[in-house]
Each structure stands twice: as C-alpha cells, then as structure tokens.
Design a binder for these strands. Structure first.
Lengths: 286, 286
DNA sequence: AATAAAAATAGACTAACGGTATAAAGGTGA
DNA sequence: TCACCTTTATACCGTTAGTCTATTTTTATT
C-alpha cells in the first residue's frame, strides 16, 4: 500500500471514529495526514470513497479474526459462535464504529448506500449460515430471522448499556447472553414452526453459495498474479489455487494453508472472502 | 399553530422524509414553504430545531394512537401490545421515518443527540412498562432487556424485509410475530433466571415514575391555562386537574375524559405525556 | 547521464451550505 | 396617523466538498 495513501487512511480513520464521518471535513483529513488536497483526490474520488476503503479493511479484519477463532474448533459449537460474535462487538467498541456504520446505513449518497447494504447483507448471511452450522439443517428456515434477532438484540443491548451504566460494556457476557437466548428461543420456534420470512432469502445468498471450489480456483489464481513475487501470500494463494483445481485435492494441505492465511493480518478484503468460501466448502472434499 | 410555521413544518417534513435530513437544505425548505429565510429563523433557531419539532409531533401522534388502542382493553392482553407495536411500525413505514430516526441518533449536534436519546429512552421505557403489564411483576427484572429484544428485532426484520422482498411489509404479521417470540422467550428466561442488565435501570425511569397524581394536577392546570378559552381541550384538562386534586376523585369520570382526550388528534406532546402518566396511575385511585 | 513521459503534489478556485444581519415592506389595532 | 410586529429580500460570513491547473517528483527509455 502506497505510504501517502496509508497516511490519509490513518488520519481519516482517527477522525471518523472520534468526530464522526459527517463532522470530519476533508480539510481535517488533509491536516491530519499532512498531505494536500490534490494528493487526497489522487487516491480517493470522494470523501465517501475514503470511508468505504476504511470500512472494507475493517470488514476484512473481522473476517480474518473470526476465521482464526474457528480454526480447529467444531463448527456446531455455540461457544465458537459466541466468540465470533464477540469479535465484532469488541472491535466495534474499541474502534467506536457504531456511529460510523449507522451514519452510512442511512446515507443519501447512493454509492455509500449500496455499499452499506452489501456489508449488512454479508453480515446477516454470515450469521444465518453459522446458525445453520450450530443448530442443524432443521434451523435453516428460521436462520435469517434469527440473524435479525441476534444482530438487533446485540445492537440494542449495546445502546442501552451506554444509557444505564457508566462501566465498560462486558462484551463477552453480552455475546454469550444473546447466544443463550438464541438457543432457548430457536428450539421453541422450530417446535412451533413459527416463521416470519418463510422461504424468503437474501438475494446475494443464492449467487454467493453457488460458487463451487472448481470455479474458485481460477479466481484465486487471478488474484494471486496481481501480488508481488516476493509476497509470501502469493505463494500460498497460488498453491491453493492449483490444489483446488487438482484431480484429487489434498484436504489436509489445503486446511493447513488456510489456517496460515487465516492468521495473517495482511490479508485484503477480496482474498478474505475467498478464503472464507473455501473454508465453507471444505467439507465437500472427500 | 401559526399558518406560516405550519407551512414551514409541512415543507420540511416532506423534504426530510423524501431527501433525508442532511441532504435537505434550508433553501429547499424555503422554496418548498414559499417563505423567506428571515421567516424561517423567526420560528426556528436552526435546522435541527425544526427537525425536533417534527419529531415531537410524530411522537405525540404515536402516543395518542397507542392510548386510543388501549382504551377499554385489559392492560395484560398481549394482542393489545402487538397492536400498539404495530402502530409505530405502520406510522414509521407510512411516513418513511426510519432514515430520519437514524440520521439523528448518531448526529454530532449535541442538542439533536440528547433529544434523540430522550426519545429513545422514552420508547424503551414504554415497552418495558408494557412488558410488565403483560407478563406480570416477575418479568420486571427482565423488562428492559426484552424491550431491547423487541425494538431491535423489529428494526432488523424491517431492514431485512426490504432486502428479501419487493412486497409491502406485513407490519401486522411482523408485530404479532415478535410478540409471540417475546412470549416464548421471556417465559424461559424467567425460569432460567438468565439476566443481562440485572438491576440496572434507565436513568430517567426513576424520575418519571415518581410523579404522583397529586403532583400532576397543578402541572395539568398550568398547561390548560395556556390554551385559548374556546378550546374544548382546555375545559377537559381543567376538569381533569380539578378532579385529580379533589378529596375523592371520581374514577369513572376521569376515565371518561381521558378516553375523550386519547381520541383527540390535536393533542400536543406535553399533554399527551401527562395523559399517559394519569392513565398509568389510574389503578391507584380507589 | 540525459531526456521524455507519467504520476504525484500543492494550492487557488468554485458553488453551495447553515446561519447572521439589516433595511424595507406589509399588516393591525389604537 | 401612529406605533408595533411580522414578513420579506438580500447581502454577507465562514466553512464545506470537489475541480482545475501549474509545478514538482518519479520512472522508464535511450
């Protein structure tokens, strides 16, 4: 990453989380990053594009940490889900991201708007799929609405905590509490067959789930080629691409490389999404 | 209400819900209301003050409709709660208020910020107290966190609905669904004694609940005196104030007047809050 | 090493914003 | 007629996001 660009991102990041997005002017960013306006607009087409780059990198960090938390654990362990939930809460708290998320969720800027819808959909889709992991296939028809349950409950409990207490939010207690409530309610819901969304699915879910490992291999290869030769990640990604395309992919090797990648915090957004998809489809490999 | 002021409010209202608060300029409002800048600043000290006036009147309308929905029904009927929940959802949908709420919830403007915190607290406090109405005193320690449950769940289901379906949101089905899920989960929660907030309460709860009927009477009288003589509401409010201050208040009469007031859609915010408090304390009267 | 092409940079500039100030015009009741 | 208040129009201020252009720096090529 270009150092000037990184300077700008760092300064914008600090300002956005401390002063809020709308209240931070481009001039503030320029002063903070000690660059001029021309430099800023050389790297970002607009203020909102700068914000999106920041959000993208945060999303990437969350995906990466969540993968790291799941490595070597069984997918149906509710405590792993609670831990993964906790990862986002803690990161959001540490970096004061709530205002940031919400200020763009209801933005009028159409680019920001569609970006945030995509981010939101990804998160809901992720929670849904983890709910199916934990509670089994019979929970699938109820997964999406319970993702809403989890996400909404967490959000409101955080809001309320700030009004009722001056102490730091016990994020670990919060996430395990919500998962406990989820376990209690989802069992009853399945028994009662009480559904709101019915068969409705998120539009992106279909397309994202349909990507097979065979299709992923060339995409991964394509991504790897853009990296510099001396980058370790390039080697790993290219090996992974070749192995996925092979007649008989060696599962243990793939798992090993994935684990290494899941613990590398330099992973970019595009790659982290692919890694997650491979991980998801790992069971398909004999 | 002054016609010019009403003109401004109407124009601002239309703009805020269609273009959003931040994207609507004062000039837009002036053009829409066909008034000059001087007139605007004669009635509102700032753009945010104008927004707050709009939010206030919406809040008043919701309180009034919710009271009307509860008149003559028993307070512990879950279907009444579902109906009252539906009232807000429907109004928010009709008037496209979600963007408005969220755009001010995370505002940097300190006045707007504290205003929205107050509005939010009032809503959570209201849901909490209704939960105690419906599920009894044993639900009290869990009321606040289940208010978070209800509010957050509703919010997320609405968000998601817009992503998964092009149809109109079935707001009635949504509210009764959430109340059903609440009934299911809260029983289990009480049995398991699983609490997150514990004894923590919203700070304003204590002060608002402590207002007695005796203290309310002079406040009501004070409010009534500001009204015009020919206003029917003045007569009703003054009668109510006198009756509350009487040695032996006649419950049936008070209830009758409250019912009349609850169905009058001209009621202002300040009065509607008082009416709600009287209604809440009605059981105290012999 | 010299030079040409390309990329990065600084900063002046624009239009629009929220909000203030002021002077003139209009309306109302005594 | 007069005093008083509301409304209007408009000029003005500081600040905003974004554009444009001239200059400097970097890179590639010979």
């Amino acid at each position: 990453m270009n150092p000037k660009k990184q300077q700008i991102l760092n300064a914008a990041y600090d300002l956005f989380i401390n002063k809020g997005y709308n209240s931070s002017s481009i001039q503030d960013i320029l002063d903070g990053a000690k660059v001029s306006k021309g430099t800023f607009y050389n790297y970002f087409g607009s203020k909102s594009e700068c914000l999106m780059a920041i959000m993208e990198s945060i999303g990437s960090e969350i995906r990466q940490r969540r993968m790291a938390a799941a490595v070597g654990m069984s997918a149906n362990d509710p405590e792993v889900l609670a831990e993964q939930l906790y990862i986002r809460i803690k990161l959001n708290l540490e970096k004061n991201l709530f205002a940031l998320y919400e200020s763009i969720f209801y933005s009028q800027d159409p680019e920001l708007k569609s970006f945030s819808v995509k981010q939101y959909s990804l998160e809901m889709e992720w929670i849904s799929s983890r709910i199916v992991d934990v509670f089994g296939k019979e929970a699938a028809p109820y997964a999406l609405e319970n993702a809403a349950f989890v996400h909404g409950y967490v959000q409101q409990l955080i809001h309320l905590w700030r009004l009722v207490s001056v102490d730091n939010l016990p994020a670990d207690k919060l996430s395990s509490f919500v998962i406990r409530r989820l376990q209690a309610t989802i069992a009853l819901q399945i028994a009662a067959k009480d559904t709101f969304f019915g068969n409705l699915k998120l539009p992106l879910a279909a397309s994202a789930d349909d990507v097979t490992l065979e299709e992923l291999a060339p995409l991964l290869e394509q991504y790897a080629q853009k990296l510099k030769d001396q980058d370790n990640i390039k080697q790993l990604a290219q090996f992974l691409a070749a192995e996925l395309a092979a007649e008989t992919p060696r599962k243990a090797l793939i798992e090993s490389v994935l684990t290494t990648l899941a613990n590398d915090n330099r992973i970019e957004s595009e790659l982290s999404i692919m890694i997650e998809q491979i991980w998801k489809h790992l069971a398909d490999i004999a």
